[in-house]
Design a protein around this nucleic acid. Structure first.
Length: 434
RNA sequence: CGGGGAGUGGCGCAGCCUGGUAGCGCACCUGUUUUGGGUACAGGGGGUCGCAGGUUCAAAUCCUGUCUCCCCGACCA
């Protein structure tokens, strides 16, 4: 992509409304624009990141055996009246009526709908276990949306639902998702601490939140430092049952539930940190299958309500969380796996024929190698280009100017470390194309 | 919802107290200049001051109402 034609409106100054780092940088780097409180437009650069995160989440869901579907954003009220949550959900649910005065709602989550889908299509234990997920926009009319995309009212969530014959099988599904989440966050290069959680409005008895450690986190956690030995940011391999059990047995609690006097962890082994909740998994048994009559015939010929769990990842929130975890005073520092482009090619002097020819050549050859390149071909000063490129956070900057080119050299800068090296044009292309 | 703050060109702000129909920086356009970390100069386009009502000869400025946005708190992916 050529930057001269990319819709990437950057801001030199901080928007007054944006107080939090990720929000500020997302606006300044041209990732999003706000339309109302907690509701945003995703611009090309932001959308590319969102899609990449979505894809990693998807791959790990598929890998765990879940199947992707796509349920609608608009749901009929009847399903929620049946489960009893239509009243219980309160003002957080956006209620709407269609032209026939039928009560509808913009889905804040999909337990009811997926349970309805299940009960009308699955009748036998032979079709279990089953995990269905989708990645869809949700709307929750939060009392106070804030922190930009981190607590929007409209947000993109991956939600998965498991159906099993009995509790034992249900817990196996739960642990599959537990592992899928560890892998997902590790692939994103994030340390996500699994914290034992309450089940809240969703109900049930087993639940974990995944909290990314970041100074700007909304919640405070206490956890056993032994959790760090698991190297959560690298835990992408196969994870055995033993490891899961060890990890789940280690202490990790939110501040509200942490009791300093009765904490099983010795003070010197206890860590305190701020976290951003990016995932939440629940096993809630038959709460919905009973109220909504989702039963299957078991091996003994008797009807039993299915055991269910639900598992959410805040996909759009992860964009903000990743920035909170990866930035400096100059801007965003994207991990390569989610970066909107891998390389920012900076042409320092567009009016210099040799320079522009060299850049055109590099751009073409990298593109041929399927490397995502953002080519800054704008006719403007070097300072602005450097500043914009640092702000955008692309992992690699390939700087091409007349000065180096005279000796056949270009400069490669690593955004994260700031390391620069002078390379021949060929070496640079080979290195980035590898 | 309770508490606090703010709405003036795309962004950041001044003007409001002491009414006289709008200004600065950045961005944008044209030209020249400059060119390895936001170059400099000149010229130019763009807003009727969140909205509604009121007071007045006259309202961005005063009064009333209303909407929106941001921050702190209870809730959440």
């Amino acid at each position: 992509m050529r930057l001269s034609s990319l819709f990437m409106p950057t801001l030199k100054e901080n928007p007054a409304d944006a107080q939090v780092t990720s929000h500020r940088l997302m606006l300044r780097a041209g990732l999003i624009r706000q339309t109302s409180a907690g509701i945003y437009i995703w611009l090309p650069m932001g959308l590319r990141v969102l899609r990449k995160i979505e894809q990693i989440v998807r791959e790990e869901q598929d890998r765990a055996g879940a199947q992707e579907i796509l349920m609608p954003t608009i749901q009929p009220a009847e399903l929620w009246q049946e489960s009893g949550r239509y009243e219980a959900y309160g003002k957080e649910m956006l209620r709407i009526t269609d032209r026939h005065d039928r009560e509808m709602l913009y889905g804040p989550t999909n337990e009811e709908m997926v349970t309805d889908l299940f009960r009308s299509n699955i009748k036998s234990y032979k079709d279990l276990p089953l995990m269905l997920y989708h990645i869809q926009w949700k709307f929750r009319d939060e009392i106070r949306p804030r922190f930009g995309i981190m607590r929007g009212r409209e947000f993109l969530m991956k939600d998965n639902y498991s159906f099993d014959l009995n509790e034992e099988a249900g817990r196996i599904s739960y642990n599959k998702m537990y592992v899928a989440y560890l892998r997902t966050f590790a692939r994103l290069g994030l340390v996500a601490i699994p914290v034992r959680a309450d089940t809240g409005a969703i109900g049930g008895d087993l639940s974990h939140e995944f909290q990314i450690l970041a100074e700007t986190g909304e919640s405070t956690l206490y956890y056993d430092k032994a959790i760090e030995d698991f190297d959560l940011a690298s835990l992408t391999g196969d994870i055995d049952a033993d490891t899961i059990e060890k990890l789940q047995n280690l202490y990790a609690m939110e501040e509200e539930k942490h009791d300093a006097d009765n904490c099983p962890v010795a003070p010197e082994n206890l860590r305190r940190a701020k976290g951003i909740e990016v995932g939440h998994i629940f096993f809630f048994g038959t709460k919905y299958s009973e109220s909504m009559n989702a039963r299957v015939t078991g091996p003994d010929g008797n009807l039993v309500p299915v055991e269910m769990g639900s598992y959410g990842v805040g996909v759009s929130r992860l964009v903000g969380a990743l920035i909170e975890a990866n930035h400096d005073e100059n801007g965003i520092i994207w991990p390569e796996v989610v970066a909107p482009y891998k390389v920012g090619l900076i042409n320092l002097r567009i009016k210099d024929e040799a320079c522009t020819a060299a850049c055109g050549d590099i751009y073409q050859r990298l593109t041929d190698k399927s490397v995502d390149v953002l080519y800054d071909d704008r006719d403007m000063g070097a300072g602005g280009k450097f500043a914009d490129m640092d702000l955008s956070g692309l992992p690699w900057q390939l700087i091409v100017g007349p000065r180096g080119l005279k000796n056949g050299l270009v400069e490669l800068k690593n955004r994260a470390t700031g390391d620069r090296q002078e390379l021949t044009l060929e070496d640079a292309i080979n290195m980035l194309g590898a």
